[in-house]
């Protein structure tokens, strides 16, 4: 097996990296290329750059900073935000990205997953899934999570959706558990195990990282390949180099730089 991967997510708005709590209240963290370079030097395994206002604004991702990031780092990165056609994705790849992640456009048009996988290969197509627990306890997908006033719960179970997008060719799933996102109380292990039972492609945990032990907990799950976090890295609470040393001490295989 490859190592467990630590992924830093850079939420981008208006050309800067921002952070928010449960998608609200964004504050500027820093420049995109500078932060990409910083995390790469600290040993992050991959970056996700998420243009958080692209999808709600119904535009595709801003390509200028995709190029800057490609020139600044020598590790893989994934771009997310408003990619709703093969043409949109093609431009993002041509600007140097390794993967695209699609979320709400996949819900609107599931065949997009199939088209992208056919054209660029499954390994380049990530489907991001925002998942919430409904009143009856079943996890359901949430659409348009980038802006709270636009979010809507879809009456489709998360597991069914994850199965569906894999059949269409998704090569990786990022499961963002919205209830735990921003809480810093740990990843939602229960939902991850549930989704892991139907996931044959790499599964990335997202939402809830607050301390080193949360990474140890989530990497204890066989079904989880990678863990994504944003604010704990941005506010300096967890240093990626130190995180990796701790994980190695706990006998979790990670890449040491």
């Amino acid at each position: 097996m490859p190592t467990k991967r630590v992924i830093a997510c850079l939420d981008v708005a208006e050309g800067k990296v921002v952070k928010g709590v449960q998608f609200n209240d964004h504050k500027v963290v820093g420049g995109i290329a500078d932060l990409a370079r910083f995390y790469s030097c600290r040993g992050v395994d991959e970056l996700v750059l998420y243009d958080i206002t692209a999808s709600p604004d119904r535009r595709s991702v801003d390509l200028a900073w995709v190029t800057q990031v490609a020139e600044s780092i020598n590790i893989p990165f994934c771009v997310a935000g408003g990619i709703r056609s093969v043409e949109d994705a093609s431009k993002v790849f041509a600007s140097g990205a390794d993967k695209v992640s699609i979320n709400s456009p996949a819900i609107e048009n599931p065949s997009l997953v199939e088209e992208l996988a056919g054209k660029f290969g499954s390994q380049a197509v990530v489907v991001g899934v925002d998942s919430v627990k409904s009143k009856n306890g079943e996890a359901q997908i949430l659409k348009f999570a980038g802006r709270p006033e636009l979010a809507e719960v879809r009456m489709q179970s998360t597991n069914e959706w994850v199965s569906r997008v894999q059949e269409l060719g998704a090569g990786e799933i990022v499961l963002n558990t919205v209830d735990s996102d921003g809480t810093k109380a740990g990843y939602d292990l229960e939902q991850l195990v549930s989704v892991g039972s139907v996931c044959n492609v790499p599964l990335v945990a997202s939402g809830g990282a607050g301390e080193v032990s949360h990474f140890e907990d989530v990497f204890g799950l066989d079904c989880v390949d990678a863990a994504l976090a944003a604010s704990v890295f941005h506010n300096g609470q967890i240093d990626i180099g130190e995180l990796k040393t701790s994980l190695l001490d706990s006998e979790i295989e990670v890449r040491n730089v």
């Binding site: 097996m1 490859p2 190592t3 991967r5 395994d45 499954s122 390994q123 090569g171 990786e172 044959n200 492609v201 790499p202 390949d225 990678a226 890449r255």
Partner: peptide, 10 residues
């Protein structure tokens, strides 16, 4: 193979 796609650092 543990997954359909080998993705990551080996």
């Amino acid at each position: 193979a543990p997954r359909k796609v080998h993705m990551g650092w080996s």
